[in-house]
Simulated scan of single mutants.
Amino acid sequence: MSLHLNLDFYEDKVEFFEAESIKVLEDKIHAQIEINKALMLSVHSVNHQMYVGEDGRRFYSAVVHFKLKQLAGSSLSGK
């Protein structure tokens, strides 16, 4: 039995978030940022929108693009 360890890293990851308040949206994004730090991903860009429904309720959404952190003198992605 042999152990095969795959060291491929995500280079890009896009995640979508939605919430009924801006505070909840921010909390969701910050929680995912902490999780993605373990994958060596950092935030590259954030796009967000706010929509007001016919009933006057606000709805918030965001798209966060994470990219592989580039460490000084390191080539983790093999490039």
Rank of each mutant, 00 (worst) to 15 (best):
F9H: 10
K28M: 11
Q70L: 03
I33T: 07
S61C: 09
N36S: 08
H30L: 11
K67M: 04
K37M: 07
K37A: 06
F9V: 07
N47V: 13
L25I: 13
N47W: 12
L76I: 09
S61W: 05
K69C: 02
L39T: 08
D12C: 04
A19I: 09
L68P: 00
Y10T: 12
L5S: 04
H30M: 12
Y10F: 10
S75W: 00
Q70P: 00
Q49C: 09
V43Q: 07
A38Y: 00
L71Q: 00
G73N: 07
V46M: 02
L7F: 00
V24N: 12
V63M: 13
V43A: 03
D12W: 06
I29G: 02
L76D: 01
H48Q: 11
S2G: 12
G56E: 01
L25Y: 06
A62V: 04
D8C: 14
L5G: 08
F59N: 05
K69M: 00
I29R: 01
A62G: 12
E26S: 15
A31M: 08
N47P: 01
N47Y: 10
S77H: 11
S77G: 03
D27R: 10
R58Y: 14
H4N: 15
D27Q: 11
I35Y: 15
F17P: 05
G53L: 05
V46F: 08
E54V: 02
D8I: 07
V46K: 03
K67T: 06
G73I: 11
K67Q: 06
Q70C: 08
I35P: 06
A62F: 07
K79D: 03
I29D: 03
I33E: 07
H48W: 13
L41W: 00
I29W: 09
F9R: 05
E20R: 13
S45I: 07
L41D: 05
K69E: 02
N36P: 04
L25M: 08
K23P: 01
R58W: 05
E26T: 15
I22F: 07
Y10P: 11
S42D: 07
G78L: 01
V52A: 14
V46D: 02
K28Q: 13
I35E: 14
V46S: 06
S42W: 08
E26K: 03
Q49T: 13
E34G: 08
A31S: 11
I35H: 12
H44G: 15
L7R: 09
Y51C: 15
N6Q: 12
S74Q: 12
S42V: 09
H4S: 15
D12H: 14
L3S: 03
V64C: 04
E11V: 15
E18I: 15
D27C: 08
D12T: 10
H30D: 14
L68H: 06
E18D: 14
N6I: 03
V24H: 04
G56W: 01
Q32A: 10
H44F: 12
G53Y: 00
G78P: 03
E11I: 07
V63G: 00
I22C: 15
